[in-house]
Nucleic acid binder design. Sequence first.
DNA 1: GTCTATAGAAGGATAGAC
DNA 2: GTCTATCCTTCTATAGAC
Lengths: 203, 203
Amino acid sequence: MATTKERILDTTAELFRRYGYTGTGLKQVVADAAAPFGSVYHFFPGGKAQLGEEVIRRSGAMYLDLVLAVLDGGADVVAGVGDVFSGAAAVLRETDYVDACPIATIALEVASSNEVLRVATAEVFDTWVAAATDRFERAGIAAAPARALALTVIELLEGGFLLSRAARTTEALDAAGAAAVALVRLAVTPPGQATRVTPRGAT
Amino acid sequence: MATTKERILDTTAELFRRYGYTGTGLKQVVADAAAPFGSVYHFFPGGKAQLGEEVIRRSGAMYLDLVLAVLDGGADVVAGVGDVFSGAAAVLRETDYVDACPIATIALEVASSNEVLRVATAEVFDTWVAAATDRFERAGIAAAPARALALTVIELLEGGFLLSRAARTTEALDAAGAAAVALVRLAVTPPGQATRVTPRGAT
DNA sequence: GTCTATAGAAGGATAGAC
DNA sequence: GTCTATCCTTCTATAGAC
């Protein structure tokens, strides 16, 4: 049985995913978590803002672990990236298009309205970019292009989530995955070796 | 001088950008628009939801016009796509990272909570995808890959906005632009012609 | 048809009983 | 330290004066 604090954190993360930060009320949190209202301020004296910050960092770390497990489970980094996108699309369909990026909605909501929470989302994204950069460097890509590629792949995932959740179709996420795989494949090709994009090369 | 209805629409669009849908109150709208409170329900009998839907569709159409003007202003579609991203990055910096996609925040907020508004955001994204697909087809790309490329480019723009607003740096948007340009350039290369990715081809 | 006042619900936060 | 009751503000929405 989870502790009261953990139930509050888990419930808040779930509600944030579905309704965002401003759309989630503390009364709804304690109702769903089956916790007394006072517990929120007992465990999070800073109120909603403190609870929000802890949920952002916690959800960000959990999602990173999840994605890295899939990424590292692939035969190589190209296959791993493909698995991340196809897995994300499958989860999206299975959860009625609810379960996507746990912090994207909040990040946009607070970007220009709450500096503390904005920094929290930025730091979470930073850990994701750093982890992806590390994986790409280990695949033989130089530091600068590896970081650019990491940013690009995460952007494709986030953009795919946005369009797919709006459309309630995974077409957009599938297209994003194909593009991400193509970009990673191009980048991991050893320098000096010709990269043929068309099936039959000419010249 | 703009009409009261137009002032309400413009003000709401601006507040939505900054605070999102749930984060924007009608009282703040009428205060900023210098309009009496009753005017909101006079012009939008459906209340906040109707106002929100009209703002989503209006902002989506205006942003499409803006982006297409930049896209079509380039020497070719490759240059146009590059201009869109560099222009978006410039606007982001100039507006203190406020002025990005006018409907992305709302789209994520309502994706799983308000079906009417979710459909509105989906239809706006559809018009964007259709317009970009059209431009890519006119550049000689076949229908199916043109649509996939359109989705991909819009996803990169949206993902770039998300990461750049969170980080308050345009590094992410710049990386997205470089990737978008690379993907478009690859796609517009006439089929059957070798595409050399590395400066010096081997084989 | 422009504007004010207010209703009724929900928001975050606090005090204090136990 | 767990839980309840309540405060004050803000929200959407409506009624009705002018």
